[in-house]
Amino acid sequence: MRFMLIVKASPESEAGVMPSEELLTHMGRYNEELVKAGVLLAGEGLHPSARGARVRFNDNQRTVIDGPFTETRELIAGFWLIQVKSFDEAVEWVKRCPNPMPGESEIEIRQVFEAEDFGAEFTPELREQEERLREQVASKH
């Protein structure tokens, strides 16, 4: 099972405040644990929303909305993508994580959909296309 661990933004991360050397050291150790356990698939920090944009869809219309965005608690400062055996295991990994922000912070845990989750609508042709695309992406990295 794959899970995305979503680090919620804070006013500091949205202001572009970089983590301290101490926090980077603790996060480095945590990331090493994830790698040694064979569960880490990806993990990155994100620039503040002021450097981002959103694209709003309304039928066939597209509207680009430039950041920054005001609802800090709804924003993402970073993420990990892990592969573990269960939701409980994902929770245990998050509980071991250093606090990613000064003071109070939050990491959201969300399971990633797998092909079998989509049911009959995900036809054999669509499955084949998905597998082919994943192989192409993997071969480029």
Rank of each mutant, 00 (worst) to 15 (best):
F3H: 02
L5M: 05
L5C: 04
V7P: 00
S10M: 01
P11A: 00
E12P: 00
E14A: 02
A15H: 01
G16V: 07
V17Q: 02
M18F: 07
E22C: 03
L24W: 02
L24A: 10
T25L: 09
R29V: 11
R29C: 03
N31Y: 08
E33Y: 04
L34Y: 03
V35K: 14
A37F: 01
G38D: 12
G38Q: 13
L40A: 09
L41V: 14
G43M: 14
H47D: 10
S49W: 03
G52T: 05
R54H: 03
V55Y: 04
N58W: 08
N60R: 08
V64Y: 05
V64I: 15
D66I: 09
T70K: 06
E71M: 13
E71N: 13
R73P: 00
E74R: 05
L75T: 01
I76W: 08
G78M: 11
G78C: 06
W80T: 04
L81S: 05
I82R: 00
Q83P: 01
S86M: 12
S86D: 06
F87L: 14
F87K: 10
D88F: 03
D88L: 13
A90P: 04
A90E: 09
V91S: 02
E92C: 06
E92M: 11
W93M: 09
K95E: 15
P100L: 10
P102T: 10
P102G: 09
E104W: 07
E104R: 11
I107L: 12
F113E: 02
E114A: 15
E116M: 08
D117R: 07
D117W: 07
G119Y: 02
E121G: 15
E121A: 15
F122R: 00
T123P: 01
P124M: 11
E125K: 10
R127W: 12
E130I: 06
E131Q: 11
V137L: 14
A138S: 11
K140T: 13
